[in-house]
Design a protein around this nucleic acid. Structure first.
Length: 324
DNA sequence: GTCCCGTACT
DNA sequence: AGTACGGGAC
């Protein structure tokens, strides 16, 4: 179903496909996670890569897998250690550390994947620990959406659909005038992907978006394999789909949340009035506005709702620590 | 200050 | 449909 026929793939689509795969196979960046087909290791790399410069991900990825080499290891870990690791490595979005931890537990408990099936009360449940292999099963994992599901299915099992991230959108938008519309991008991406070759294809098209067709295009320098078909190369219009604006981090609530997690990681447990000055230099317990004890209580309560922090009311004071 | 960016939640 | 979410690179 396509109400918008504004875009078309070139008539010789197979030549387009072959050109990209050949270009990728001739030369591409090397990343350690491209040398494994362990779905867990690939999931870790994808979750990290969603948010961080690839150079720093390499070191964090190695250290993470060294510490928790399997889903069983991660599932058994204290969540505070996982969040602490995430924070120490400046990986951002601490929620995703808890998602990854929960996803490992889902796999170990057999909640998802090939062993997933209804069972009666009292019946022995199948052991679990088998990693899901299809995009639909992978999507059941906490923190795994359409992009990550297809990336893991592709890179671990060569079993995915076309990935659609901002790199892919930009490439399709520029080269084939696919409109800035999620359904159109998904349709075009899947029409273009050679059947059953998701591993090499998704690697190749994201490499194209990262190396040749970035925000600043490098068509000739990167030897873009699609120049002869590319609409943007022909008319010089290298505009890209709109990306949502980022609110400023300095002074933001996100910054204060990060400081709470950092302080609790460092000290283990703190009373609110010990935590406050580490979050805002102008912390002033009395009152009810920003920077007050009441404000801080609201902040740590939200972190508790997110599963990142534990808050305990004692007779004399309220204490906070990273969630175990 | 701007950019990066997929997912969960409302 | 819109918003929250981290912190480093530039």
């Amino acid at each position: 179903m396509s109400e918008s026929a504004e875009w078309t793939l070139p008539g010789d689509a197979d030549a387009v496909r072959d050109a990209l795969v050949s270009w990728y196979e001739t030369d591409h960046r090397e990343f350690p996670w491209r040398r494994t087909d362990d779905p867990y290791a690939i999931l870790v790399s994808e979750v990290m890569s969603q948010q961080t410069q690839l150079s720093r991900v390499e070191e964090a990825w190695d250290a993470f897998l060294d510490r928790w080499p399997t889903t069983a290891d991660l599932a058994a870990a204290d969540q505070s250690d996982v969040v602490g690791f995430w924070s120490r490595h400046s990986l951002g979005y601490n929620n995703r550390a808890t998602y990854l931890h929960e996803a490992a537990q889902q796999v170990e408990e057999g909640e998802v994947g090939p062993t997933d099936r209804p069972h009666e009360d009292g019946e022995a449940v199948e052991a679990g620990g088998e990693f899901p292999e299809t995009p639909a099963e992978l999507s059941e994992l906490m923190g795994v959406g359409p992009y990550t599901a297809n990336a893991v299915a592709s890179f671990a099992f060569d079993n995915g659909n076309a990935v659609v991230d901002t790199n892919v959108k930009r490439v399709l938008y520029r080269a084939f005038d696919v409109p800035d519309d999620d359904a159109a991008f998904e349709e075009a991406a899947n029409e273009l992907m050679p059947e059953g070759e998701s591993r090499v294809w998704n690697n190749a098209i994201m490499e194209l978006g990262g190396v040749a067709c970035g925000k600043r295009p490098a068509c000739d320098d990167a030897g873009c394999p699609w120049r002869e078909w590319c609409s943007a190369y022909a008319d010089g219009d290298f505009s890209a789909p709109d990306v949502p604006k980022q609110s400023t981090f300095e002074g933001s609530r996100r910054q204060k949340r990060g400081r709470v997690v950092g302080a609790l990681r460092e000290h283990g447990e703190l009373e609110l009035d010990e935590l406050g000055p580490r979050v805002r230099v102008d912390y002033a317990p009395e009152g009810d506005g920003d920077g007050s004890r009441e404000w801080l209580r609201g902040l740590v309560d939200d972190l508790a709702d997110d599963g990142l922090v534990e808050v305990e009311d004692r007779a004399d004071a309220t204490v906070a620590r990273l969630a175990s």
